[in-house]
Design a protein around this nucleic acid. Structure first.
Lengths: 117, 117
DNA sequence: TTGACGTATTCCCTTATAGGTATATGATTG
DNA sequence: CAATCATATACCTATAAGGGAATACGTCAA
């Protein structure tokens, strides 16, 4: 099997840095494709392709405005990622794992020193 | 160019559901590979391969314990993901985008109604 | 209608995934 | 030392990514 499609969920869609950039830009407000093309310095087709992925996981909404297509952020699909991360948050904030690290080093030292019976 | 390697960063490593499961299991404490194999119901080589990816992005630490290898969670590399998400948090919590949605619908209705002038 | 503009899609290519299966490596026991 | 356990790696296959380039499509202006 190959890797899961980028359009499987927000986790996969957002793993690509360019797509995160796009979302970051859209966070400031609605924008037509060409704006993004300029801001990102990418070729237009690549931007359209990234936008397609973001659309498929519902991270952006589109609206037709004349010959332009206005893209707008829809952050809701990011919530599952945030929710999943919640349980790990203490690990880096409160240095909860400091204790684990110490225990680890103790065990390793123990093995090194007292290894010969 | 192909997709970025899964070992590029935590974003990519964590896009795979199995690897998130592994981290979830390790969140409860250190475990040898075979424990994970049983708990996940996966073949041992696949588990080892997932663990390798997690190791390469430093999401797990290993410790030799006799013929077993004890894996432990290291959540720190998840922080960048959390940090990136921070700016979107309000979007789903406080329904900040409700306003945007309303504006959107107004615009669309406007277009529908006043289009034939 | 013709042409220019804004955007999406298609095709080609290189690369790497994830799973399956077999096997290699390292540590322990007898 | 041989056998076994715990884990890692190698090899194979199918699949699809993302970039580049060309082109198709829809809209508006003259």
């Amino acid at each position: 099997m190959a890797r899961a499609a980028t359009t499987t969920d927000a986790f996969n869609a957002v793993a690509e840095p360019r797509r995160r950039q796009i979302l970051d830009l859209l966070a400031a407000g609605e924008r037509p494709v060409n704006d993004l093309v300029e801001l990102l310095g990418l070729a237009q087709p690549q931007v359209s392709k990234h936008l397609r992925v973001l659309r498929e996981v519902d991270l952006v909404h589109v609206r037709d405005e004349g010959r332009q297509r206005m893209y707008r952020l829809n952050a809701e699909p990011l919530k599952p990622i945030h929710d999943w991360l919640a349980k790990y948050e203490q690990s880096w904030n409160k240095r909860f794992d400091l204790m684990d690290d110490v225990l680890d080093e103790l065990k390793e030292a123990e093995e090194r020193d007292g290894s010969d019976d």
